[in-house]
Amino acid sequence: MEDIKAYIESGILELYVLGDVTQEEKNQVEAMISEYPAVKAELDEIERSMEAYALENAIEPSEELRGKILNSLLTNFGDDDTFPTKKEPVKKDNLIAFTASKPNSFYKYAFAACLALLILSVAALVDVYDQLKEANTQLVALSSSNQHFTNTVKFMDHQLNIYRDPTFKVIKLQGTAKHTSASMLVAFSPIKKQVMIDMADLQLPQNDSAHQYQLWALVGGKPVSLGVFDKTSDSVDMKQMQSIAVAQAFAVTLEPKGGSVNPTMDQMMVMGAVL
């Protein structure tokens, strides 16, 4: 059910309604519609919403465009030569004169009316298309914002669950003499043998692509590697490191990418004892 919800929130259904999808994406959406009623219901609701939005924001053609169309019609009327000019005298003889029938002007008027309607329709469609594009942009932005909000709520919920768990100890690692402003939080559960790093509270310089931070546990006076991690601008989750049941202290060093067998002591960033 979570996968269906994530699929609905991805924004693909809005793009499908607007026709802004590939053939493969279109086939996938139609398969999801036929298989999952919830997806079909969401698609119907999106279509209704977009239709209501278009109707509510419809714009009448400008007076300038209306005037041009009417002037065109009057010009067509003025060019018509069906009006009588001079009455011919009636010849009094036994012959009946048959006058040639003039071309029927009905088609001229019909064509002019159709042309006027076409211009009005094109103007209205262009305006509706622009509004739909703007609405689509807003929907995609809203979907992205909702996804970010959902991820933030999930992270906070996960974080609270760890900090509320009585089996976890929260250890604050303080910066060393060379890095006094550095700090981070480590949650350690000896019972569950779990070690978690609070990436949202990570106060370390961002590492380059050639280096990574490495977490160490001091066990019986010897350092034990618990894995490597990166400090990036979007580090906001709780990162689980390698399992360990006993530790007297934790420390972090900056090592070459992939980590080192032994810690580089002059590159130690933070450390803290388990009380």
Rank of each mutant, 00 (worst) to 15 (best):
D79V: 09
A100T: 11
A31G: 09
T150W: 12
L185V: 11
A112Y: 07
Q194F: 09
L125I: 14
K26C: 04
L13Y: 00
N146P: 04
D165F: 06
D3I: 12
T152K: 14
S145A: 15
G227Q: 01
S189A: 14
V270T: 10
R164H: 11
F77S: 07
T82M: 08
V90W: 02
A52V: 03
E30H: 05
N104A: 06
L73E: 03
F188E: 03
K192L: 15
H158K: 15
M50S: 05
V39T: 03
P263W: 01
Q131F: 07
K133R: 09
Y109V: 12
L132C: 03
V252F: 00
E24Y: 00
V236M: 03
N27S: 09
D237Y: 15
Y109I: 11
L65G: 01
A52I: 05
S49M: 09
V29C: 01
V17F: 01
K154L: 13
A187P: 02
Y36Q: 10
T253S: 00
L73T: 03
L15T: 06
K193F: 08
L142E: 13
K178R: 05
A177G: 06
D80T: 15
M196G: 08
I69F: 06
E45F: 08
K178L: 11
K40Q: 14
Y7S: 02
T152A: 15
V128R: 04
S260H: 04
R48G: 11
L117D: 02
V17P: 00
S62I: 08
D237E: 13
V236S: 05
S209N: 08
T82D: 02
G220I: 04
L275D: 13
Q159F: 14
I59C: 02
N57P: 03
A177C: 04
V39P: 01
N207S: 03
Y7Q: 04
P89I: 09
E63L: 12
A217M: 02
N207T: 03
Q267V: 01
A124R: 13
H148V: 14
G78Q: 15
E45I: 08
S225C: 08
V170P: 01
K102A: 14
P205C: 12
S233L: 13
F98T: 13
L218H: 04
H148L: 13
T85M: 10
V195F: 02
V21A: 05
T85V: 14
A110R: 08
F106Y: 14
L202P: 01
Q267I: 00
D237K: 10
E255L: 05
A58W: 08
A217L: 05
L275S: 13
A247M: 03
V122N: 01
N207Y: 01
D157R: 14
E255I: 10
Q131M: 10
E35D: 11
Q147E: 12
F83Q: 04
Y109F: 10
D20T: 07
K154Y: 12
L15G: 02
V126I: 12
V224T: 10
A54Y: 07
P84R: 00
E51P: 04
I191E: 09
N262G: 07
S49H: 05
A182P: 07
D80V: 15
M271V: 06
S209E: 14
S243L: 12
K68H: 12
F77E: 06
